[in-house]
């Protein structure tokens, strides 16, 4: 008999994260200090922020590979304005830009029915190019110290307030997604779009909002990037999309949609950030980063697919078995010729 309350996927991810730290700590005890753990979490803050946004998209059953480009673009815009003394405008335009890119994506995908992988691949290329146009190929530097210092402000010990803010955002958005009526639309659309339509849920609208949220959070990530990193190159944010998608998957979000939560995305981001630090501590060069991520990703995704397939098959067989009425069946006559 199958479990009635299955273990939430987030629990598995948390256990993995804990095991990771403990395991490494056993090998190299200096890893397991509170400071180190907090350091790891702090370094995952930008991934976490971007992962929140993309989680909305993935939960509705789509994908967004343009978040890295959005992050880079918004970082460039914000950075250039902050450098010129205009913090407020910098933040405003960055957020607006993120929303706008998300809107374009959402429009193409929900209205024009362009597959999300292709649409966002396209916008990724376009925005990447636009970064060069905007920055003229040059780096953006000389960010005022005060702005850079923002990322260093600590609360409650060593946690940066960025991370704290991010956690707050995670909790709020998580509550939104799980407790509010409208927030639950995302999961519904990803879980069973036809069923959602039947209940009167606006499927297209929900997807567009999801993409706009993805762009918005990528922009927030861009703003944080300016503060944390301190300078913006034209290739800022490259590869982030793959990392945050991996983070979501590691955190228990299924790419088929309808499964997972923002908490999971956060844990996944923490795992991603920790892997590099773990490798350093174990004496591996960071070269192994990608390999491990790749293997992890493949293993998780394959297991997930196999599990889902088995479940679907079980349901199908159950359905068919229920249709058979258990009565006496007609005995077969030996030869069909009579008279």
């Amino acid at each position: 008999m199958h479990k009635k309350h299955s273990i939430p996927r987030e629990t598995t991810s948390v256990i993995f994260l804990i095991l990771l730290f403990v395991g490494v700590g056993l090998i190299n005890a200096s890893f397991l200090t509170v400071d180190n753990i907090i350091l790891s979490l702090n370094s995952s803050v930008i991934y976490t922020v971007v992962a929140i946004g993309i989680a909305f998209v993935i939960i509705t059953g789509e994908i967004d590979v343009s978040v890295g480009a959005t992050l880079g673009m918004t970082a460039a815009v914000c950075g250039s304005m902050v450098r010129d003394g205009n913090v407020g405008m910098g933040i405003f335009w960055a957020l607006l830009l993120g929303l706008f890119i998300g809107l374009i994506n959402g429009f193409g995908i929900a209205i024009l029915r362009i597959p999300s992988i292709i649409m966002t691949l396209g916008t990724n290329g376009i925005v990447r190019g636009l970064i060069y146009v905007y920055t003229d190929g040059k780096w953006i530097e000389n960010i005022p110290l005060k702005f850079k210092a923002l990322s260093q402000v600590r609360l409650f010990g060593s946690f940066t307030w960025f991370y704290f803010l991010t956690l707050l955002a995670v909790v709020l958005m998580h509550l939104f997604m799980t407790k509010s009526q409208v927030g639950r639309y995302f999961k519904a659309v990803g879980d069973n779009p036809n069923g959602a339509n039947l209940l009167g849920i606006p499927v297209s609208g929900t997807k567009i909002i999801a993409f706009m949220l993805s762009g918005l959070f990528a922009a927030i990530g861009g703003i944080m990037y300016v503060s944390r990193v301190g300078f913006i190159t034209p290739i800022a944010g490259i590869g982030y999309e793959m990392k945050v998608i991996a983070a979501c998957v590691l955190g228990g979000i299924s790419l088929t949609g309808g499964v997972g939560s923002l908490m999971g995305a956060t844990i996944g981001a923490a795992i991603m950030a920790s892997i590099s630090r773990v490798l350093v501590f174990l004496g591996f060069p960071s070269d192994y980063d990608n390999t491990i991520t790749g293997i992890l990703l493949i293993v998780i995704v394959v297991f997930d697919a196999v599990f889902q397939a088995n479940l679907a098959e079980k349901m199908r067989r159950q359905r068919l078995a229920a249709k058979i009425v258990h009565t006496q069946s007609v005995a077969l006559e030996e030869a069909p010729d009579h008279e």
């Binding site: 994908i63 992988i117 793959m242 998608i245 991996a246 998957v249 790419l255 088929t256 990608n290 390999t291 991520t293 790749g294 293997i295 992890l296 990703l297 493949i298 995704v301 394959v302 997930d304 697919a305 196999v306 889902q308 397939a309």
Partner: peptide, 14 residues
């Protein structure tokens, strides 16, 4: 039955 996008994503990392 995994989605090609995901598995080749993992492959690209790997």
């Amino acid at each position: 039955g995994v989605q090609p996008m995901v598995v080749t994503l993992g492959g690209s990392f790997l």
